[in-house]
C-alpha cells in the first residue's frame, strides 16, 4: 500500500493539494467537493484510503490512474452511490449519501450506462421529473449533435451510442456537478471533440463542474484545467494544469564546451533532469521559460530550443521526485 500523501512541491508558494482547492483561491471560486480523510474499504481491500481533496466549481477536473486505482470508487462516493467507510465527502457542504437535496444537482454517468426505459423519449421524461434544471431546448440541440433518435431502442445501440445517449440525458439535465467515468470510452474522434466542446461550454456558461475519471492522460490534457492522480487508493497528486506546465520547462541545448549539471545548478537552474548526449544536452528544470533562457544565454549556447511538455512528462517528473514509477501508475 502506497503511503497516502499528496506529492508536495519544494516551492512553498505553490498550494499543497492536500489542503488547497483546485482553484486559485476558495474566496474566488466556490468549493464544490470536499473529501476529508475519505476511505472506502471492501472487506480487506482498501479502494480509497484517507483521501483529502477539494474540487472547485466551474472547472473540469481530470481524475487519472490505472485500473484499480480507486477512480470509479471516488466517483461513486461523489455520486452518493457508496457510503464512505471512514471520513466524509461533501457537496457544497452537504453529505451526499442518501441526500436527494445534494443529489439533484449531481449526475453520474457510469462506465456502463443503464437506462430504465427503452428509449430516450421516456428516459428524458424521467430525468425531467427528477431534475428541476432539465433544459428541453438543450436536449433537442444535443439530439441534433449526437446521432441518436428519440424513439430509438436504447438496448440495441452500440457501446459508443449507449454512452452518447447517457451523456445527452446528463448534459440536458444541467447538473451543477457532472461525474463521468471513462467518458470518452467508445466515442469516435469527432464525438470526442463534440463532447469536449459541449462540456467546455456548459462549464463556461452555467458554471458546471465536471469530474472525469480516465486512464488515458492524453485524453484529458487539452481539456481539463485540473488533474488529480490516484494510485492504490491514495491521491498522490492534485494540481492546476497550467500551473504545472508553467512551473516546468524542457529545453535542448548545445554548448561549445563541456557543461556539467552542477555548473548549471550553481547558476540558479533547478534541474530535475539533465541528460547529455555528446554536446547536446536535454534539460528539464523547475523554472520559468524566461529564467531558463536568461541563465543559459549567459553561456552563449550554440543551440537553445524550448520544447513542449506533454502532461505525461509533467507527471513523470513530478512523480519521479517521490520515487514513483509512472508506468506503474498509469495504464
Amino acid at each position: 500500500m502506497v503511503n497516502n500523501q499528496v506529492v508536495e512541491r519544494k516551492d512553498s508558494e505553490r498550494p499543497n493539494p492536500s489542503t488547497a482547492t483546485t482553484t486559485q483561491s476558495s474566496d474566488e471560486q466556490e468549493v464544490v467537493i470536499v473529501a476529508d480523510s475519505l476511505s472506502k474499504h471492501f472487506g480487506a481491500t482498501k479502494a480509497l484510503d484517507k483521501v483529502n481533496c477539494k474540487i472547485g466549481g466551474a472547472s473540469i477536473f481530470g481524475l487519472i490512474g490505472s485500473n484499480g486505482a480507486g477512480k470509479s470508487t471516488f466517483l461513486r462516493l461523489a455520486a452518493g452511490v457508496y457510503k464512505p467507510t471512514e471520513g466524509t465527502i461533501l457537496y457544497r457542504g452537504q453529505v451526499i449519501y442518501d441526500n436527494p437535496n445534494a443529489k439533484k444537482e449531481i449526475i453520474f454517468v457510469a462506465d456502463q450506462p443503464y437506462f430504465y426505459f427503452e428509449n430516450l423519449k421516456k428516459m428524458s421524461a424521467l430525468y425531467r421529473s427528477l431534475y428541476e434544471t432539465w433544459d428541453q431546448e438543450l436536449y433537442h440541440e444535443l439530439l441534433q449533435i449526437f446521432p441518436i433518435k428519440e424513439d430509438q431502442r436504447l438496448d440495441l445501440l452500440s457501446k459508443g451510442l449507449h454512452r452518447q445517449a447517457a451523456l445527452i440525458l446528463a448534459i440536458a439535465s444541467k447538473p451543477r456537478l457532472l461525474l463521468m467515468d471513462e467518458a470518452f470510452d467508445g466515442l469516435d474522434p469527432v464525438m470526442r471533440q463534440n463532447l469536449k466542446r459541449i462540456l467546455a461550454r456548459q462549464v463556461a456558461d452555467d458554471g458546471m463542474t465536471t469530474l472525469i475519471a480516465s486512464q488515458n492522460l492524453r485524453e484529458l490534457e487539452d481539456f481539463c484545467d485540473h488533474v488529480g492522480l490516484l494510485h492504490d487508493g491514495g491521491l498522490l497528486f492534485v494540481e492546476e494544469l497550467d500551473k504545472l506546465r508553467l512551473g516546468l520547462v524542457k529545453a535542448q541545448v548545445a554548448f561549445r564546451g563541456d557543461i556539467t549539471e552542477k555548473q548549471l545548478k550553481s547558476m540558479g537552474l533547478e534541474i530535475l533532469r539533465f541528460h547529455a548526449r555528446g554536446s547536446l544536452v536535454e534539460i528539464l528544470s523547475r523554472n520559468t521559460e524566461l529564467e531558463l533562457r536568461t541563465i543559459l544565454n549567459q553561456l552563449s549556447p550554440l543551440l537553445l530550443d524550448v520544447l513542449p511538455l506533454t502532461l505525461e512528462e509533467v507527471f513523470i517528473y513530478e512523480l519521479s521526485r517521490k520515487a514513483y514509477i509512472v508506468s506503474e501508475l498509469l495504464a
Binding site: G80, D98, N99, P100, K103, K104, Q112, Y114
Partner: peptide, 18 residues
C-alpha cells in the same frame, strides 16, 4: 444486484426509503 443499475438508481435524487 447489478452494478450498472445500482449506479443509476442510487445516484438518482431519491432517498433509500423512497
Amino acid at each position: 444486484y447489478r452494478r450498472d443499475t445500482v449506479d443509476f438508481e442510487w445516484s438518482l435524487p431519491l432517498t433509500k426509503n423512497e
